[in-house]
Simulated scan of single mutants.
Amino acid sequence: MIRNYDRVPSTLVRAYADLDVATVHEARGKRGAMAAAIKPIHPGMRVCGTALTVRSQPGDNLMLHKAIDIVSPGEILVVDMTGWEGGPWGDLMSVSAKARGCGGLVIDGYVRDSETIRAHGFNVFSRGLSVNGTFKEAIGLINHPVSCGGVIVAPGDLILGDDDGVCVVPKAEAEAVLEQAKIRVEDELVSREQFARGETLWNLAGFQKLAEAKGLREEPVTGEEN
Rank of each mutant, 00 (worst) to 15 (best):
Cys48Ala: 13
Thr53Lys: 03
His144Lys: 11
Ala35Gln: 13
Gly149Met: 01
Leu62Arg: 15
Lys182His: 04
Glu219Gln: 14
Leu19Val: 00
Asp163Ala: 07
His42Asp: 03
Glu219Met: 10
Glu175His: 04
Glu224Ser: 11
Gln57Trp: 12
Leu189Thr: 07
Ala138Glu: 15
Arg7Ala: 05
Gly74Met: 07
Gln180Phe: 00
Gly109His: 10
Glu26His: 04
Asp164Arg: 10
Tyr5Gln: 07
Asp157Gln: 06
Glu175Tyr: 01
Val177Ala: 00
Arg28Ile: 00
Cys102Ala: 15
Val221Asn: 14
Arg3Thr: 13
Arg112His: 12
Ser94His: 12
Thr11Pro: 03
Phe122Pro: 02
Gln57Ser: 15
Thr116Gly: 04
Cys167Thr: 11
Ile159Lys: 04
Gly32Asp: 05
Pro170Phe: 09
Ala27Arg: 00
Ala154Gln: 10
His25Trp: 13
Val131Arg: 15
Ala138Lys: 12
Val185Cys: 00
Arg3Pro: 00
Ile2Asn: 14
Ile142Pro: 01
Asn4Gly: 05
Leu178Cys: 01
Gly59Ala: 03
His42Leu: 06
Gly206Cys: 08
Lys39Leu: 07
Gly156Lys: 02
Glu186Asn: 06
Pro40Val: 03
Glu179His: 09
Lys98Ile: 14
Asn203Ser: 15
Lys214Ala: 14
Gly86Arg: 09
Leu216Val: 03
Ala196Pro: 02
Leu201Ile: 08
Glu137Val: 14
Glu188Gln: 04
Lys39Glu: 02
Glu137Ser: 15
